[in-house]
Each structure stands twice: as C-alpha cells, then as structure tokens.
C-alpha cells in the first residue's frame, strides 16, 4: 500500500494506516500488547474506507481514473484474453504506439482487440504520446477493425485517452478526418463491437474507438466531450477548477448509464482498479462476455441497425410551442446583413 500513489482525499485513510503500522512495529519490538487498539483502529479504517469509496464524488473518481498506476489497455488485454498477438502500423505512415491492437482469444473465441495505450513510465509515455493518438493511430485502429470485419471477428476496444494528440503534424495529416472516418466506418461494420471505457474517455479521440453496439465503463472511469480541466479554463479561465467542472459535467459511469450513453458498469474493487487488477479483469471479462453473447447471434444487418439505433436516440431537445408557422413570404432580394466585424479565432 505504501508504494501506491495516494490521492489527497485518501490521506486520512493512509495516515490511519500508517498509525496502525507504527503500532504494530512498536508492539513487535517492545513486546507490548496493542492488539485492542490496533483492532479498534482497523475497524475505524475500514469504516472510513467504506464511507469514502462508496460515496465518491465525480472529481474523486476523475482522480482515480487518471492515476498513473491504473491498469492500462495492455494490462486488461493480458488479463482478460489469451493468445494476444499485437499487430502494428496503419500501412500509410507509421505505427502510432498510442494505440495498440491485434488478435486475441476471449474464452476461445478469436476477436480483434484495440485500445489507447498510456505509458508505464516517462520514457514509455513519451513513446506513446501519453496515450493521445495521431491520425496514424486512428488509421491503424481502422485497419484492424476492417480486418476484423472482413474475417467476421468481433471487435473489442478499450478507451483510455485524454484525447487526440494536439500537435501540428497531427493536424497536417488530418486528425479531424481520421477521427470522423472511424466514427462513420465503425457504424457500418457487420460484426459485434463492444467498447469499454477503462480510464479517461476524452473527446473525439476517445469516441474514435467508441462506436460500439455496447459501451461499458469501469466504475471509476470518466467520459466527456471536453476534459474537466478544459471546461474549467473556458468557463472560469482557470484549469485548476477542474474538480468543480467535473461535478457539473456528468462524467461518471453512473451518469452515463442514466443518459443511456452506456449499457453497463463494470465493478471495481474498493479504492479503484489499481488495487486489484485480477478482480477488475474478472468482472470485466464476465460483463464483456455477457454482452458479446447477446450480440453474436445477430446478423450483420441487425448489428448495424442495433448500433445505429443506440446512437440515433442520444440527445435531448424540445419543440418550441409557438412553432414558426408564419405565412410563407420569401423575399426576392438578399438579406441586408448586420454590421459585424469578423472576429479572429
């Protein structure tokens, strides 16, 4: 536990744990009996943990979702699947390591797995652009998905990115187009697609792997159009107010289930997935299989229709009462425009 990165809101618990450890050492070294005190404190610690972790705020979940030691796509791929064979490259420009993908078996069934990949240390993170893909990453994902579609393999994606990489070369190579194309092509594949948001699902770079028949989220994962930090800097010109923005933005798995953006939530151990990868992977595998089994009997047409329906129904709006039913009176001359100064962006 000591080696783990503790978040500020977890400090009271870690302090208490430290106290317990000290008492234990003391008892051992001096042959004194603190067992009653230790038991009392352990009881208290457990109660504090339950209270904290059962009632976590969106901001607290966001911090857990972003923990450096949180399991990555490759961790889950290794833990959930067998026979993983990584495949590389987009056949156009490069092999973007911010996205990993390849073949694997799930309960013996061959599938294509793809995920955003953060680095495990600084060097790895630099090589993987902190899990933020360039166009070649999205195109590599697309190539692997097209391959899966051709060979009738289900597609499983893991979503874990702050967003597409904001760089000049990414723009030059068509970042927008790469994301947009994935959205459209994913909508048209005749194989089951299940997506799991495992950490942070940020913006279009996340969605580019996210057009699935089923979208699941780990309990502490977050998913949003813009990062809470980004929202805070726009709203209050202060990125450090991300915690406040996180509360307003409805980014948790529970929120997204209510908005019918996702279909299911994967349970995490108390304190987060990093506390017990095996436990989380087991829950993930159960849920993944459950949804896949529902999709496997469907025809390609049904799968496409099912996916279309899933996304088609998302959105909330209303029809204004006083609908503009004025008499048609199209004028022949063009509108006189307002006095404007075209602004710079």
């Amino acid at each position: 536990m000591a080696a783990e990165q503790m978040l500020p809101f977890e400090k009271p618990i870690s302090d208490l744990r430290e106290k317990i450890a000290t008492l234990k050492t003391l008892a051992e070294n001096n042959g004194m009996d603190f067992s009653e005190e230790i038991a009392r404190l352990e009881e208290k610690c457990k109660a504090m943990e339950e209270e904290l972790y059962n009632e976590m705020t969106p901001a607290q979940k966001m911090h857990i979702a972003r923990l450096h030691q949180r399991p990555t796509s490759l961790d889950f791929i290794q833990a959930v699947f067998t026979d993983f064979m990584e495949l590389h490259g987009d056949r156009l420009f490069a092999d973007d390591l911010a996205i990993v993908g390849g073949l694997a078996k799930l309960n013996g069934l061959p599938v294509t797995v793809i995920g955003h990949q953060r680095g495990k240390d600084t060097k790895d993170n630099i090589a993987r652009f902190f899990g933020s893909p360039h166009p070649e990453g999205f195109r590599k994902a697309l190539r692997l998905m097209q391959q899966a579609n051709k060979f009738n393999r289900p597609i499983i994606t893991f979503i874990d990115t702050k967003g597409a990489y904001p760089g000049n070369t990414a723009e030059e190579r068509g970042q927008s187009e790469a994301i947009a194309r994935n959205l459209r092509e994913m909508a048209g594949f005749g194989v089951p697609i299940v997506c799991i948001v495992i950490g942070e699902g940020g913006s279009g770079g996340a969605l580019a792997l996210g057009v699935g028949n089923r979208v699941l989220m780990l309990e502490n994962a977050i998913y949003s159009a813009i990062s809470p930090n980004g929202a805070a800097s726009i709203l209050w010109k202060d990125a450090t107010k991300a915690d406040i923005a996180a509360e307003a933005m409805k980014i948790t798995a529970k929120d997204l289930l209510e908005f019918e953006v996702i279909e299911d939530i994967v349970e995490e151990p108390q304190g987060g997935a990093h506390r017990d990868l095996a436990f989380t992977a087991e829950r993930l595998k159960e849920k993944l299989w459950k949804h896949l089994v529902e999709l496997l009997p469907m025809t390609p047409e049904q799968l496409i229709e099912d996916r279309y329906h899933k996304f088609r129904k998302i959105g909330q709006f209303r029809m204004a009462e006083a609908a503009s039913q004025e008499t048609p009176q199209a004028s022949q001359e063009s509108d006189a425009p307002e006095m404007t100064e075209s602004a710079k962006v």
Binding site: R184, A187, Q316
Partner: peptide, 26 residues
C-alpha cells in the same frame, strides 16, 4: 467552435450520431 460543452457527453455523442447517419446515407 466544436462540441457544446454544456451538454457534455450528449454533445460528444452527436459526432457518432451524425457520422452513423452518413454511413447509412453514403
């Protein structure tokens, strides 16, 4: 300017919705 931040995830999903409709149409 991009997504309507105030509608958070629902605005993000409009990207998928419109693109899926284009998949059908095109």
């Amino acid at each position: 300017g991009g997504a309507r931040m105030q509608e958070s995830i629902l605005s993000l999903m409009q990207m998928a919705k419109t693109s899926a409709a284009l998949s059908m149409f095109q």
